[in-house]
Design a protein around this nucleic acid. Structure first.
Length: 606
DNA sequence: GGAAGGCTTC
């Protein structure tokens, strides 16, 4: 109805009552065809069907050129329909390379890569020669599938057909290997491209590294790219920003932000979202919020990133506000949004709201909870002290719990001192063959706290007997755009001597504040002095001392660590932030802690 | 005769 109306209103159609052309010469047909609307002006599939009917009436659908045009309009325009396109394609007596390419391209656009590969196969079976346009589409289908086997085959066929040095195909290959996680192969193709390289070659290469978690390498390549004079490409910058975000590299992230503003006339939504994520993940939540508030348009990703950012910083109120704004805007939340929302509740101990959101996700938004959601819930309940309920939830889950699930329960047991349930959690971790030394250490510490030294020691020897290696705890701090990494009792840094001297001064001042380290968390039965020595050399403290030495007053200190903040370290940092009047932001394995004037943003709940 | 490549959240 709507389509019909549109057609009559625009009146560029031939009067439907006029007689069809009976096999008259091409020219008459073409004259009629010229009265038809330009295919890319069509706004809906209904309208398209009417035009298609006219083509059939005029016999134009059998003219190869027109048939191809109809096909590509139907596959590629926003209203397009692959089901209908398939009918048109099946009607073409002898489809050419262009038609096959159109179908492959359409299937890829429709995210139906399997169908795309079928058309490619059919193309070869019918001896239709693929051309330089065919391979980018087919490779994109392989990339969508993460199909390394298919991708490699197509790669050899591209070589066989002589397209080895076509830069579009090379870029598609870099992308395909990247999506398959084969970064080495991406690099190989990239190197082979030599001076052919374009800006897209770089961005595909950077994306391949980011996807694989090779963030440092991504940033190194990004620097090389910049030094070679490539500018003004926001896709590459998005990959670089993502890497900064994971590394906590704020200074570099800021530099990229500046160059985005300098080189790109209009920063798009994806880049802005990546900026918000970078700022939030690097400890500068305010800056992230500022960008978020200024964005005239936001999509699901933007909201999602902002919610997770606020959650990580323990701002549950803010996260829930953004979540309602998102709903008000009519956006349908997805499972990732709910991971953020549940995390926010968990980090702030908002048990009631967390349970409400969990229900809303399942019943109102019809999202089946994933293991990640259940893990958030176990964490939320456990840390709020509802240990039995958390245990019940695990037992009743429709999915098998994993290591994370039991570890959430274990650490909640540690916080609330429930040894009995901790033992159950630990047994389950053993059954899952967990190789994590942290689990043994938690239990060992719990026994130590209960003064059950023998049991504590048993768990320590367990670590040795099972041949477990403790992943070294490290802390990173960025000073003048350069990352410095410290492990516990580290002497490898060139400034180590000064760092330990600073540490000594810090502890001296802490003593004046009446601080005495809580050594009860150390499960080895050694003397007090030895325990104190263990505590004072922790990587976070080394990083803190280093930052105090190398940054000026008024400058915020930002540290990223891979271990979970201990009570002792928390109290230590809070006091240092007061004594040295330095705002200190620490990102531990789970969240951010903002220390200011002796207080922490988490309010002691983490 | 006509078409093409790269990016973001847990």
């Amino acid at each position: 109805m709507v389509g019909g109306l549109a057609v009559h209103q625009t009146s560029y159609l031939i009067n439907p009552s006029s007689s069809p052309i009976q096999g008259s010469e091409q020219r008459t047909r073409e004259q009629h065809a010229s009265c038809l609307p330009s295919l890319n002006q069509i706004k809906s599939i209904e309208e398209f069907k009417q035009v298609h009917a006219q083509f059939i009436k005029l016999g134009l659908d059998q003219v190869p050129r027109h048939a191809s045009e109809l096909l590509s309009a139907c596959t590629l325009l926003h209203w397009g329909s692959m089901d209908y396109a398939r009918l048109i394609f099946d009607d073409i007596k002898d489809p050419g390379t262009y038609d096959f390419n159109t179908m492959i391209r359409g299937c890829v656009k429709d995210c139906n890569s399997v169908a795309a590969l079928h058309y490619y196969k059919e193309m070869l079976e019918r001896d239709t020669m693929p051309n330089n346009f065919t391979f980018p589409f087919v490779l994109k289908a392989c990339a969508q599938l993460s199909g390394m086997e298919e991708g490699t085959q197509v790669h050899s066929q591209a070589i066989k057909f002589g397209f080895e040095s076509d830069i579009y195909i090379q870029n598609s290959l870099i992308n395909m290997y990247g999506k398959c996680g084969e970064v080495k192969s991406s690099c190989k193709v990239f190197d082979l491209a030599g001076t052919n390289k374009t800006i897209a070659s770089w961005s595909a290469l950077l994306a391949a590294h980011t996807r694989k978690g090779l963030w440092r390498e991504c940033l190194k390549l990004f620097t090389v790219r910049n030094n070679e004079g490539w500018r003004g490409d926001d896709t590459s910058m998005v990959s670089a920003l993502t890497s900064c975000s994971h590394l906590g590299a704020l200074d570099l992230g800021r530099t990229i932000h500046c160059s985005l503003l300098r080189n790109i006339s209009e920063v798009d939504m994806t880049a802005q979202t990546a900026l918000i994520d970078m700022y939030a993940n690097c400890g500068s939540l305010e800056k992230g919020l500022e960008i978020f508030d200024r964005m005239p348009q936001k999509n699901l990703w933007t909201y999602s990133v902002m919610i997770s950012g606020l959650a990580m910083h323990g701002d549950a109120k803010g996260a829930l506000q953004i979540y309602s704004r998102m709903l008000k805007q009519g956006l349908e939340p997805d499972e990732v949004v709910y991971v953020g929302v549940l995390n926010a509740c968990s980090h702030a101990g908002r048990l009631k709201e967390g349970i409400q959101c969990f229900d809303r996700m399942r019943f109102e938004h019809q999202i089946r909870p994933t293991l990640q959601h259940y893990n958030c819930m176990v964490d939320l309940m456990g840390r709020a002290g509802k240990l039995e309920e958390a245990h019940e939830l695990i037992e009743g889950m429709p999915i098998e719990p994993d290591e994370v699930t039991w570890r959430c329960l274990l650490s909640a047991c540690k916080v609330h001192g429930n040894l009995e349930l901790a033992e159950i959690a630990y047994r389950n971790l053993l059954e899952l063959d967990s190789q994590n030394t942290g689990d043994c250490i938690i239990l060992s510490n719990m026994y130590a706290q209960a003064k059950r030294w023998e049991d504590a020691a048993k768990f320590r020897t367990d670590i040795v007997n099972r041949g477990l290696l403790q992943a070294p705890g490290f802390s990173r701090v960025e000073v003048k755009g350069k990352m410095h990494t410290f492990v516990s009792h580290d002497w490898s840094h060139p400034q180590s001597y000064q760092v330990y001297e600073m540490l000594y001064q810090m502890e001296w001042q802490l003593k004046f504040e009446g601080y005495s380290p809580d050594v009860s968390q150390i499960s080895v039965d050694v003397n007090e002095k030895e325990k104190r020595r263990t505590l004072s050399g922790q990587s976070q403290k080394l990083a803190l001392a280093f930052a105090l030495l190398n940054t000026s007053r008024g400058c915020k200190i930002r540290i990223v660590t891979n271990i979970r903040m201990s009570r002792e370290c928390h109290e230590y940092t809070a006091l240092i932030s007061k004594i040295f009047a330095r705002e200190t932001i620490i990102k531990d394995r789970h969240r951010f802690h903002h220390f200011k004037q002796g207080q922490c943003s988490c309010g002691g709940y983490w």
